[in-house]
Simulated assay, not measured.
Amino acid sequence: NEQYDVIVLGTGLKECVLSGLLATKGKKVLHLDRNEYYGGETASLNLTNLWKQFRPNQEPPKEYGHNRDWNVDLIPKFIMANGKLVKMLLHTKVTKYLEWKCLDATYVAQYQKGGLLKKEKMAIAKVPANDMEALKSNLMGLFEKKRCMNFYKYVENVELDNSTTWKKIDLETATMKEVYKHYKLEDNTIDFLGHAVALHTNDQYLNQ
């Protein structure tokens, strides 16, 4: 039977989501891709396909080992675990074709001034993910660690639909800058909280 309701060209993430949504609505879908692999621009390629993509008419060097030992992402993928995209992927069953790995930690580079006993340097430090990690972090001084720990505790316990947990902050009107100010957090702490923890790409969120 070669009759279909919809033909979808390409097997990238958006095409797979579209096919899945149509299929869940009872449509008969034909899904095609001109490549020898699935995934489109978001594919993960073995050694053979990687060479075909970027070095056509050449063979991979034998010292690189077996073809199956390689799985190179064309585009690194990072998806928030509680985001709408994850729910959509689960609903459309696209997750059956994906492999997932939890992110163990994130790190930032921080410039450290030199002194009498140490040289200036760019240090790599783990971004604290909770109040206890904040207390042990090398990103902050002693007093700032305490303030950051209190901020983490507040975030962990606050409930947006329960104003009694907001304490002295009106979350319906306060900007993020005002929340930081309430906890007297330093600019460096605000920087890694906003960009390395909350993953904002700019500082516009501070006024929201």
Rank of each mutant, 00 (worst) to 15 (best):
T92Y: 01
K87V: 05
L85F: 07
A105H: 12
L85T: 08
D104M: 08
E99K: 15
L89E: 00
T92H: 06
A81M: 09
M80Q: 15
T106R: 11
L103I: 12
W70Q: 05
M88V: 07
L90D: 13
H91Y: 12
Y97Q: 14
N82I: 01
D104R: 12
T92V: 08
L85K: 11
R68A: 08
N82K: 12
D69R: 08
H91K: 15
F78C: 14
Y64K: 14
K96L: 12
R68E: 03
H91M: 13
R68C: 02
E99F: 08
E99I: 09
E99S: 14
K62Q: 15
M80I: 10
N67M: 01
K77L: 13
T106V: 07
L98I: 04
K87F: 00
L89S: 00
C102E: 13
L74W: 01
K96W: 06
G65H: 00
G65I: 01
D73S: 10
T95E: 10
L98Q: 02
L85A: 12
K87N: 08
C102N: 15
K77E: 09
L74D: 00
V94S: 09
L98R: 01
W100V: 06
N71R: 12
L103Y: 06
P76T: 03
T95C: 10
K77Q: 15
E63L: 11
P76G: 04
A105S: 14
W70R: 03
